[in-house]
Amino acid sequence: MITSNGATIIDTRTNTIVHEQLVPEQYILPVLEAARRLDLQFCYYTSEQLYAEKTLYDRHNWYLADVPVRSVQDIVEVYPQPCIKIGAYGDAETLREKRLELERLFADQLYVTQTAAQWLEFLHPEVSKANALKTITRLLDIQPSEVIAFGDNHNDLEMLRFAGLGVAMGNAHEEVKAVADYVTLTNTEDGVADALEKFVFALQP
């Protein structure tokens, strides 16, 4: 199982981590300072805990978090705990421009990606869903041509290009649809099931 945008790979048979890449410690405070100047709010992911700044914690329902969530006044309090990724929340109308600015500032130092309309994530520079998928293909000794990947946002682009069949959800951003081999139905219309029926189950004898 790939989690944290590709930073962690878990063997679900044994519930053990088989691959993990942490945010380089020397870039944690600089990226927090730079993003703070752009009026972003933060959460800080460790392997055991998700820390969210109080203003952000109070604003969101964290029921989807796969680790316990704790509120802190300032995310800098958590540093220097080992960090899997940093999440940053901001205004949807301006977040793309802020992402481009942060990508420029931290080129070759961090992987900066937009995971939703109001969310950015900062990770180890070699982390991506595509690289995690490459690792899994090596571990399982399979070819990219044997892989189907599904995506709907900016952080899925490389993964869709890598997979033998890249499928964009019907509700995906246009740039995601543009690189996909196939556009399926939306998330709420069982788009994954639709594509699996078309490309996997329909081909079985």
Rank of each mutant, 00 (worst) to 15 (best):
I2C: 04
N5S: 11
D11L: 05
T12L: 01
T14G: 03
H19D: 10
E20I: 13
Q21R: 12
L22R: 11
V23K: 05
Y27G: 06
L32H: 12
E33P: 03
E33W: 01
E33F: 04
R36L: 08
R37D: 15
D39Y: 11
F42Y: 01
C43L: 08
S47Y: 07
E48V: 06
Y51W: 04
A52M: 01
T55R: 15
L56S: 02
Y57T: 06
Y57G: 05
D58Q: 05
R59H: 06
P68Y: 02
V69E: 09
V72W: 01
V72H: 06
V76N: 05
V78T: 08
V78N: 05
P82V: 02
I86N: 08
I86Q: 12
Y89K: 13
Y89G: 13
D91F: 04
A92E: 15
R96G: 15
R99Y: 10
E101A: 14
E103D: 02
L105M: 09
F106V: 05
F106P: 02
Q109F: 11
L110H: 04
V112R: 11
T113G: 13
T115V: 01
T115A: 00
T115Y: 00
A116Y: 07
A117M: 13
Q118R: 12
Q118G: 15
E121Q: 07
F122D: 07
H124R: 02
P125M: 03
V127D: 05
S128L: 01
K129Q: 07
A130Y: 03
A130T: 03
A132G: 09
T135W: 10
T135C: 05
T135L: 04
T137K: 07
R138S: 13
L139K: 15
L139C: 14
L140W: 14
D141E: 14
I142E: 15
Q143H: 14
Q143E: 12
P144G: 02
S145T: 11
V147C: 15
A149H: 09
F150P: 00
D152Y: 11
D152R: 03
N153H: 12
H154A: 14
H154D: 15
N155M: 04
L160T: 09
L165G: 06
G166T: 07
V167N: 10
M169I: 09
N171S: 04
A172Y: 08
H173M: 14
E174S: 13
E175K: 09
K177I: 01
A178C: 08
A178E: 05
V179K: 03
A180P: 00
A180E: 02
D181Y: 06
N187Q: 10
N187S: 12
E189T: 09
G191R: 02
A193K: 01
D194H: 14
D194F: 11
A195C: 00
K198L: 12
V200S: 09
V200G: 06
A202C: 07
L203Y: 15
P205E: 07
